[in-house]
Design a protein around this nucleic acid. Structure first.
Lengths: 219, 219
DNA sequence: GCGAACCGCTACTTTCGTCGGGGGTAGCCG
DNA sequence: CGGCTACCCCCGACGAAAGTAGCGGTTCGC
C-alpha cells in the first residue's frame, strides 16, 4: 500500500510545522506540500496531487471555505479535512456544505488527527466529537427521516456490540477476557475488533484503546 | 496465581463503593473487606489478612497516618497504599515515613489505580506523578547522593531506552516500527516492552499505552 | 575481579487480526 | 408473495504480531 499524500494549508508557519511533525510520525502518510492561503492551496493541489488536504478556515486572501468549495468542484480532487480553532456552528455547516469530508478542532490529539486523515483518505467522513453532538442535535428535529439518519450513521456510528467491545479494549482487556465478559467466543471478539479498526482507521488495538480514552469513554 | 487481597479503608460509603467497583473489574484482585476508620481497619486486617490496604488519610477517629504506622509495625503486615484528595507535602512525607508503599490522589484514573495495587502487592512502590515530581525536587538539593538516587530510581524509574519505547508504544506503533525508529531489532523492542509491563504492573501493551497517555507523555 | 544494571539478541509460546462463511432480521421491488 | 440487498452478530482456521525465557556483552561502582 502506497502512502497517503497530504497537503497542509494554514497561514501560520508554526502551525504548519507542527502538523508536519505529527503527520511525519506516521509511516503511511506523506506530506507532499504546504500552502499559506486558499489560492496557493489550489496551485499546490494541481502540482502535488494530494489525497487529503488539511485546510484551515481563517486565512488572509482566499479563505478555507472558498478553497474547499473549489477543490470539491474538481474532478478527482482531494478530500478536504477542515481544521480550525473554533467550532462555531456556522463554520461547521458551511464547511460540510462546501464539500469537506471532515471537521476537526486544532486541539485534537495528534493520534486522532492521524486517524482522521486515514479515515478520510479511505472515503469515509470524520467529525470532532463536539461537532458530531451538534449535528445530532441539528438532526434531532426530524429524526424520523431515514436518509439523514443513515447519513449520520456512516460518520462515526458503532453498533451496540462494537461499542461494548470498544470499552473493553480501552480497559486493556485481552480478547479472551472480553469474550467471557460479553458472552461471545474469542473469534467473535476478534471480528468486532477488526470492525473497530476499520471504522476508526486504526491499524491495531492500541490505537483503538487510546481513541476510546480520548473520546471520554473511560476514566 | 491466586488473587491479591485488598482492604478498602475510607470514611465515605460512596468512595468505598466506587473503589470496590474499580477493583472488581480486575480478575486478579479481590476486595476482602472495608473499614470506615483506622481502628476498624486494624481489626479488619487481623480478620481478613489482606495483601494491600487502600487507606484514606482524613478520617474521623483514628486517622489514616496513625493506622498506617500501626500496620507497618506488624510482622507480615499488609502493604499500604495511601489514597487522598490532596497532595499536600506534609501528607506525602508523613505517609511515606509512616511506612506507606504508595501515595495516589483520588482523581487517579481507575486503570492506574489497579496497576498501583499490583505493583505494590509485588513489593514495589508507586507514587502519583505530581508526588514523584515533588520528591525529585526535594532530593534535588543533594542529587549527588547515590543512595537516595537509587532509592528514587526503584520507584518509577524507567531507563532511557525504556522511556523511548514507552512513548512509541503510547503512539500505538507496532514493535517492528519501533525498532526501525529507535535503531534496534524487533526482539530488543520486545524485551523493553516486557520490562515496561513488569515495571508498570501491566499485562499487555494496551495498558502501558494508556498509562503513557495518562502520565501526560503524549498529546 | 565481581556483582548489578543496562542493552541487545535468538528461540519459543501465546495472543492478535484477517479471511471466509453461516444464520438472522428488515427494507425494497418486481 | 418471493427474491434481493444490506446489516448485524456470530464462529473456525490460519498467518502475523506480541510477549516470555534465557543468554552474551558492556559499563561502572565496590
Amino acid at each position: 500500500m502506497t502512502a497517503t499524500r497530504v497537503l497542509i494549508v494554514d497561514d501560520e508557519q508554526l502551525v504548519r510545522a507542527g502538523l508536519r511533525m505529527i503527520l511525519q510520525s506516521a509511516a503511511d502518510l506523506e506530506v507532499v506540500g504546504e500552502a499559506g492561503d486558499g489560492a496557493q492551496a489550489l496551485r499546490a493541489v494541481a502540482e502535488h496531487r494530494p489525497d487529503v488536504v488539511l485546510m484551515d478556515i481563517r486565512m488572509p486572501g482566499t479563505d478555507g471555505l472558498t478553497a474547499t468549495r473549489q477543490l470539491a468542484d474538481l474532478a478527482n480532487g482531494p478530500k478536504v479535512l477542515v481544521l480550525t480553532t473554533f467550532d462555531l456552528d456556522d463554520y461547521v455547516f458551511r464547511a460540510l456544505q462546501a464539500g469537506a469530508s471532515g471537521f476537526l478542532l486544532k486541539d485534537t490529539p495528534p493520534l486522532e488527527l492521524l486517524n482522521a486523515v486515514r479515515v478520510i483518505a479511505a472515503g469515509e467522513a470524520m467529525l470532532a466529537p463536539t461537532v458530531t453532538r451538534r449535528l445530532i442535535t441539528h438532526y434531532a428535529a426530524d429524526s424520523r427521516d431515514r436518509r439523514k439518519q443513515t447519513a449520520l450513521h456512516r460518520l462515526t456510528a458503532l453498533t451496540d456490540r462494537e461499542s461494548e467491545v470498544l470499552v473493553a479494549v480501552g480497559r486493556g482487556w485481552p480478547n479472551a477476557q472480553i469474550g467471557r465478559e460479553l458472552y461471545m467466543s474469542e473469534a467473535t471478539v476478534k471480528a468486532h475488533v477488526s470492525k473497530l479498526l476499520e471504522k476508526t482507521g486504526s491499524t491495531n488495538r492500541v490505537q483503538v484503546a487510546i481513541l476510546a480514552h480520548e473520546a471520554g469513554l473511560l476514566g
